[in-house]
């Protein structure tokens, strides 16, 4: 229950003005409208993926599938590279998020502790890279020099820490009462002990939220694959999605049956690609609001 809610409940006992009622009705209406606008495109994609090709192209599909069939999905599921890329994306997302979280927690916790001399400088050093960077080509050259090209590390390491996320977590950690930390230290915990035994159990919300931030980024990322990968067996899902959605071949001669299916396949691929994320986030959602805080980096 949010603070306002609580306050409002108490005030409700005092009086519920007509203005308030009007406002609430207005509020509900605006939010309903917004929700409809948010949902519609996604529902359209879903409907189109089950609809007959010509119906999609003639604009007959609006909200419900027209002349339902699942041939587009059958076609997509037979796409050999799809499953491989699905597995790759799962791996990149899982392992990548794990690496992200470990480094971000370490960075955020150490930078939040006053006893670390020089943390102000180190924090600024990290923050600086948010606004100033070497650019795409120099970064590519570094990754190449490290011999990471065409390995999964090229996907996982260059973005291993997001400074913004680290600052969010650091702000969260700074709100943890110092007394808890000191008590643990008196019990003989070193900094790792404090972090793992005291802090992290209190930080579930932050971990979940930041973890979700990272996971979405991994799931939807394709550019690092374009930059760093030359082996189809390493491609993530988004590369396949782009091939299906954006492909404009130069010389071609695809069969007519496939041509007629192309639009439906496009939508089915989109659905397959976004489904896992859409299924996961509602379960993590309750942590979101508790897990993020942003503030100055000066302390």
């Amino acid at each position: 229950m949010s603070v306002t809610e609580a306050a409002v409940r108490r005030s409700n006992r005092i009086r519920v003005s007509r203005g308030r009622k009007l406002f609430l009705a207005f509020n509900t209406a605006v939010l309903l409208l917004l929700c409809a606008a948010m949902l519609y495109p996604v529902l359209f994609v879903l409907a189109a993926s089950f609809s007959e090709e010509t119906a999609i192209l003639k604009g007959e599909v609006t909200l419900l599938p027209v002349r339902v069939h699942i041939r587009a999905y059958e076609k997509v599921f037979h796409y050999p590279l799809l499953w491989k890329s699905y597995a790759n994306t799962l791996l990149y997302t899982g392992l990548g998020t794990a690496i992200n979280l470990v480094l971000t927690v370490f960075g955020a916790w150490s930078l939040s502790q006053k006893k670390m001399v020089g943390r102000r400088f180190l924090t600024l050093m990290c923050t600086f890279t948010m606004f100033f960077n070497g650019g795409m080509i120099p970064t590519f050259l570094v990754v190449k020099e490290l011999k990471l090209l065409n390995t999964l590390w090229a996907i996982l390491l260059p973005g291993a820490v997001s400074t913004y996320n680290m600052i969010l977590m650091r702000t969260f950690f700074m709100a943890i009462p110092q007394s808890l930390v000191e008590a643990a230290e008196l019990d003989g915990c070193n900094d790792f002990g404090v972090l793992f035994r005291i802090v992290l159990p209190l930080s579930l919300a932050s971990l979940m939220t930041i973890g979700m931030f990272y996971a979405v980024a991994h799931w939807n990322s394709y550019f690092s694959a374009v930059l760093y990968l030359n082996r189809p067996e390493l491609y993530p899902l988004q590369i396949i999605l782009r091939q299906v959605v954006l492909m404009n071949e130069i010389v071609e001669n695809a069969s007519s049956t496939e041509n007629v299916m192309a639009e439906g396949i496009k939508y089915a691929t989109i659905v397959v690609a976004m489904l896992p994320m859409l299924c996961v986030y509602p379960f993590v959602q309750r942590y979101f609001v508790k897990g993020v805080m942003v503030g100055s980096v000066k302390e």
Partner: peptide
């Protein structure tokens, strides 16, 4: 074989040549 996806061929070529490998 080193495969470069057709839809980003120009980018891949640019990177290849920037890398010098």
């Amino acid at each position: 074989i080193l495969s470069a996806p057709t839809e980003s061929l120009a980018e891949k070529y640019g990177l290849l040549m920037a890398g010098g490998d």
